[in-house]
Design a protein around this nucleic acid. Structure first.
Length: 648
DNA sequence: GTGAAGGGCCAC
DNA sequence: AAACGTGGCCCTTCAC
C-alpha cells in the first residue's frame, strides 16, 4: 500500500508551490510504525522565488498573529553565519521557504521587504532555539520587535532533563520523523564543532530539498507550539516559561551579540611565560622521576609514580585499571614529602591555564568584532541555570594567583568604558534560609551578620566574637555542604578531619538549625510523593529514581532533591533580574551593555558617564527581582575596574 | 582520521 | 554502597 497525500493540490496564492508527502508507507507492516504524517494534515511546502510570490507571502504573513520562523545558514555559529534562506509557517501543513542569495546585498534587499513584519510588535514568532535565528538576523541589523515562543524552552520547562532537538520533539510529540540534515549535506559536514566552519554546504543544497527540509522545520515548530502550550498548562510550568525563560531569549541574544573584548597581546605574553614555567616544571619532574614520559598522560604518570617509584604501594586504581593521579592523590603524596607530587600539581596548573584559557581564548575572537562571543545554553542545565560555551566564560579562573591573571585580559570596549561586575551575596544560603524558614538562619541574614561566622557561633556554641578562623572555615564548608546534600564522609574528606568530628559538627548544625533539617526531610518526602521538586517560581525537576531500591541511585536523587530547588531558585532570580536590568538599560537609552552572566554575577561593559546611575539601578533590580519568603534580605554588591579582575 | 570515553580540573 | 550539586573543555587512549 502506498499512501500519497497532498499531491497537486490547488495553490491558493498562486505561488510556485511544491508539495510532498512525508510518510510514504511501503508495506502494510509499516503502517503500524509509530511515525505518521504531521497531524494527519496534508502539507504544502513551497519555495518562494519570484518577486510577486514574495510579496504575496509577506502579505499573507502580515495578516497572521503567529508565525513560526526558521533560518537556514552557512554556519552553526550564529555570529559567523550567512543567511541561506528563511522558512515560515502560519498554519499547520503549509509552509514557505525563501532562499537568500549568496550575494549579501541581494539578501539584504530581500530582508528589507520583511521589515514591516519584523518591526510589528503584535506578532508572535515561533521557533526552536529562536535565539539562534534572532542572532543571525541581528548581524543583518534586524531586530524582531514582536513576542517570541521558543519551543525548545517550552519543552525545557516541561522536561528539563535530556535531549530536545527538533527531530526528537517531532517524533515524540507529533509522531512524525522529519528529514534528517544528513540527507542534505552529508554526515561529514556535521563535524563542524572543532573548526567552527561551514555547516556543510547549505548553499549547495538543491532548492527542492532545502525547501522541504526548511519548510518542514517551520511546520513542525508551528505544531509543537500547540502541543506545548497545553502541556505547559497541564504541568503547571507556564510561569517558568512565560515569565522567566521565554522572555530571557532577547536578553541573551543581545549579550551574545555584544561579546566581550579580550586583550590578545596580554594573553600572548602570558602564554610565553606559562610555556617557560611549564618547561622548567616538566624538567624537574623528569629529573625527580629519573625518566622521561608524557606528563600530560595520567596513565603514564600513574605507572611512573606507583610502579617505578613505588610512592604508594596501596595506590588506588580506577575502574579501567589506571592509577588515580588526581590532585587529591598528589597532595597526599606531597604531604608524605614527595616533592615530585608538588611539582606535578604545579605543572598541571600551568598547562591547564595555558591550554584551556590563555591559548584558546584568542582563537575564539570573532574577526568581525574583535571580541569573544560566548553562547548561552538556555535549555541545558537541569536546575535552570544557564550554561556558557565556545568559550565557556563561566569558569574563568579566579582562585589562584596565576589563574586570576587571566581575568586581566577581559577588558572594556574602549577608553570610555569600564567593566562593572555585580554579584549576589551568599544567594544560595539565603535561599536555603528563606525556603526552609529556619529561624536562626533567617535572623542571621536579617541582622546582616557574616553568615559563616554566625553559623560557627551556633555550631561551636561560642559568642560570635570568639569564632576562630578555623571554626569559620569549617562552618563555611558545612554551609556549602548543606546546599549539595553532603554527608559526614564528604565533610571529613573536604576538611581533612575525622568522620567522627565531621559527624559532631553536622549533628550540632542540625540541632542549631532545625528548620534546615526539616527542609531536607520535607523536600525528600515531597519528591517521593510527587516524583519532582520545584523552585520558588515552580520550575520542576523530575526525580525518577527518588524511590529506587538502589542506595546509590536513590542517594543521588535525594541530593538532587535538596540541591535543585536551591540552585534553581537562584537561577530563576538572576534570570528575572537580567530581564529587568536589560529593559531598564533599553528604556533609559543607555550606552552600557550587559555582557556576561556567571550564575550569581552580571558583568557590564559600562559607559563611564553612566556608571553612577547604572550601579544603583543594577543592584536595585537584582535585589528586588524575586523577593524571598520569611523576609530574608537579598543583597548584591557591585565593583568596577579596567578589567574583570579589578571589577570583581 | 574520527569520535567516544576516561581522567582531570576550571567556575559557581 | 557510596559518600558534593550544576556545568564545559583539554588531553590521552582506544575502538572503528
Amino acid at each position: 500500500m502506498r499512501l500519497r497525500l497532498g499531491l497537486g493540490l490547488g495553490l491558493g496564492l498562486g505561488l510556485r508551490l511544491r508539495t510532498k508527502t512525508k510518510t510514504e508507507v511501503e508495506t502494510e507492516e509499516e503502517v503500524l510504525l509509530p511515525f505518521r504524517k504531521i497531524g494527519d494534515v496534508e502539507h504544502h511546502y513551497s519555495a518562494v522565488i519570484t518577486q510577486s510570490d514574495l510579496e504575496k507571502l509577506i502579505h499573507k504573513l502580515s495578516k497572521a498573529e503567529e508565525i513560526s520562523f526558521d533560518t537556514e545558514t552557512t554556519n552553526i555559529d550564529a555570529n559567523l553565519a550567512e543567511l541561506v534562506g528563511m522558512s515560515f509557517c502560519i498554519k499547520a501543513g503549509e509552509a514557505f521557504y525563501v532562499p537568500c542569495p549568496a550575494n549579501q546585498q541581494e539578501t539584504r534587499k530581500i530582508l528589507e521587504q520583511f521589515e514591516s513584519l519584523f518591526i510589528d510588535e503584535s506578532k508572535i514568532w515561533i521557533g526552536q532555539n529562536i535565539k539562534y535565528d534572532l542572532l543571525v538576523l541581528k548581524w543583518y541589523g534586524i531586530e524582531l520587535k514582536g513576542k517570541l515562543f521558543d519551543t525548545m524552552l517550552a519543552h525545557y520547562a516541561i522536561e528539563p532533563e535530556g535531549k530536545r532537538n527538533m527531530d526528537l520533539l517531532s517524533e515524540k510529540y507529533l509522531r512524525y520523523e522529519p528529514i534528517h540534515i544528513d540527507e542534505l549535506i552529508g554526515k561529514k559536514a556535521r563535524q563542524t564543532k572543532s573548526t567552527g566552519e561551514s555547516q556543510g554546504n547549505m548553499r549547495d543544497v538543491e532548492l527542492e530539498k532545502i525547501t522541504d527540509y526548511a519548510a518542514e522545520d517551520a511546520d513542525i515548530t508551528f505544531q509543537l507550539k500547540e502541543t506545548f502550550t497545553s502541556l505547559l498548562k497541564k504541568e503547571k510550568v507556564e510561569k517558568v516559561f512565560n515569565v522567566i525563560d521565554n522572555p530571557l531569549v532577547k536578553v541573551l541574544t543581545d549579550m551574545e551579540f555584544e561579546g566581550i573584548r579580550i586583550d590578545e597581546g596580554f594573553l600572548k605574553n602570558y602564554s610565553v611565560e606559562l610555556e617557560k614555567e611549564a618547561a622548567i616544571s616538566e624538567k624537574k619532574v623528569f629529573e625527580l622521576a629519573g625518566v622521561h614520559f608524557n606528563l600530560a598522560s595520567p596513565k603514564q604518570l600513574g605507572e611512573v609514580l606507583f610502579d617505578k617509584l613505588k610512592l604508594d604501594t596501596n595506590a588506588k586504581k580506577t575502574k579501567t585499571g589506571q592509577y588515580q593521579t588526581g590532585e587529591e592523590v598528589l597532595l597526599k603524596l606531597a604531604a608524605k614529602g614527595h616533592s615530585i607530587a608538588e611539582e606535578i600539581i604545579n605543572f598541571r596548573e600551568l598547562t591547564k591555564l595555558k591550554s584551556t584559557y590563555v591559548d584558546s581564548l584568542p582563537l575564539l575572537i570573532n574577526p568581525k568584532t574583535g571580541r569573544v562571543h560566548t553562547k548561552y545554553g538556555q535549555a541545558v542545565a537541569v536546575t535552570g541555570r544557564l550554561a556558557s560555551n565556545n568559550p565557556n566564560l563561566q569558569n574563568i579562573p579566579v582562585r589562584t594567583d596565576r589563574g586570576k591573571e587571566i581575568r586581566k585580559a577581559f577588558i572594556p570596549r574602549d577608553k570610555n568604558h569600564v567593566l562593572l561586575s555585580a554579584d549576589y551575596s551568599q544567594i544560595e544560603l539565603r535561599i536555603v534560609a528563606a525556603i526552609s524558614g529556619d529561624k536562626n538562619m533567617c535572623e542571621a541574614f536579617k541582622a546582616g551578620m557574616d553568615i559563616h561566622a554566625a553559623t560557627a557561633a551556633k555550631v561551636f556554641g561560642v559568642d560570635i566574637n570568639e569564632v576562630t578562623k578555623e571554626m569559620r572555615y569549617k562552618s563555611k564548608s558545612v554551609n556549602f555542604g548543606i546546599i549539595y546534600g553532603q554527608g559526614a564522609f564528604g565533610l571529613a574528606d573536604n576538611l581533612g578531619i575525622s568522620r567522627t568530628e565531621a559527624k559532631e559538627i553536622i549533628d550540632s548544625y542540625k540541632k542549631e538549625f532545625p528548620g534546615i533539617q526539616n527542609y531536607m526531610n520535607n523536600t525528600i518526602n515531597f519528591a517521593r510523593e510527587h516524583g519532582f521538586v520545584e523552585t520558588l517560581m515552580g520550575r520542576k525537576r523530575w526525580l525518577k529514581d527518588i524511590n529506587s531500591a538502589n542506595f546509590t541511585v536513590r542517594g543521588f536523587a535525594e541530593r538532587n532533591a535538596i540541591n535543585s530547588p536551591i540552585q534553581g531558585t537562584a537561577a530563576d532570580m538572576i534570570k528575572l533580574s537580567m530581564q529587568k536590568v536589560h529593559a531598564a538599560i533599553k528604556k533609559e537609552k543607555m550606552k552600557s551593555k550587559m555582557i556576561l552572566q556567571v550564575h550569581d554575577e552580571l558583568v557590564f561593559d559600562a559607559a563611564r558617564d553612566e556608571v553612577h546611575e547604572l550601579k544603583p539601578l543594577i543592584l536595585e533590580y537584582m535585589e528586588k527581582a524575586l523577593p524571598l519568603p520569611s523576609d530574608v534580605p537579598v543583597i548584591a554588591d557591585c565593583g568596577q575596574g579596567e578589567n574583570w579582575l579589578e571589577a570583581h
